[in-house]
């Protein structure tokens, strides 16, 4: 017990408080100036916007993936099931260079996309691609157990009451999945906001255009702007904390029905 608390404090809590104290050192006006400079605002916009889009993409395709893994039998299912966890196991930097080489205009997929006029790397689209990679397992793995536990008799009850397959999916299955789906979505979003390694290789990193918030922290740090770096970190920590609250609230809400 004591050991747990001590380690927790030394490794996590005390260092975390350092960012708050450091940014407070700037004073109120200094804090505002650093936290909401034009460049920082654009970086948040990109980080949050791209994370949101990626989370939506994952919400859709992740749900389909979870559905296929739970409900269908197909050859290679075990492999697909393992591959879904790749983003958990693959170092983010490796993912970053792999995605960049694949989706760059010279890359295998990027070249084909370029032919139809889509530029998929070195711009916000690239950021979305990287964040989609990172966030996918969060949606799949939160939905899967809920989908598996969704008793078949509930679907059968709906069918015996005259509901067609689409009605059953829309009125019975999706509402039952909603809390888990929102949780997975929020987790994918939260992870995307803080992601660094997989993004920087494919983002292009142009200030005001394709520069994510975590990168801005590093840039400030390299220029010895410790206060500004800490301030942006405080804003991001605030958002992480908010996301934690949101996820907990979703789960508390879901428990109402169980």
């Amino acid at each position: 017990m004591g050991v747990t608390l001590t380690i927790l404090s030394v490794i996590v809590l005390i260092p975390l408080s350092a960012v708050a104290i450091k940014s407070a050192g700037l004073g109120f006006d200094g804090f505002l100036a650093a936290a909401f400079s034009e460049r920082a605002l654009r970086a948040y916009q990109l980080s949050f916007g791209a994370s949101l889009v990626a989370a939506v993409v994952n919400g859709l395709f992740g749900a389909l993936t979870a559905w296929a893994l739970v409900r269908y039998e197909f050859p290679g299912k075990a492999v697909i099931n393992a591959v879904v966890d790749l983003p958990f196991a693959l170092p983010t930097a490796v993912a970053g260079i792999a995605l960049a080489s694949l989706y760059a205009p010279t890359g295998w997929v990027g070249a084909k996309l370029a032919m139809v006029g889509i530029k998929a790397a070195y711009n916000p689209v690239g950021v979305v691609i990287a964040l989609t990679f990172i966030g996918l397992p969060f949606v799949v793995r939160t939905l899967e157990p809920v989908l598996r536990d969704l008793a078949a008799d509930v679907e059968e009850a709906a069918a015996s009451l005259g509901a067609g397959r689409l009605s059953i999916i829309g009125r019975v299955i999706l509402p039952a999945l909603a809390p888990a789906w929102l949780t997975g979505f929020a987790m994918a979003f939260a992870r995307g906001v803080g992601e660094y390694g997989s993004v920087i290789f494919i983002a292009g990193n142009m200030p005001f255009k394709s520069e994510i918030a975590p990168l801005l922290i590093i840039i400030q740090l390299e220029q010895y702007q410790y206060g500004a770096a800490a301030t942006i970190a405080v804003v991001m920590l605030g958002v992480s904390f908010l996301m934690l609250l949101v996820i907990n609230a979703i789960q508390a809400w879901a428990r109402r029905f169980v």
Partner: peptide, 16 residues
């Protein structure tokens, strides 16, 4: 908590 903190922030706190 460390799961929801950006890795960059994680590095930053030790620098600070």
């Amino acid at each position: 908590l460390p799961f929801s903190v950006s890795p960059v922030v994680a590095g930053l706190i030790y620098v600070l």
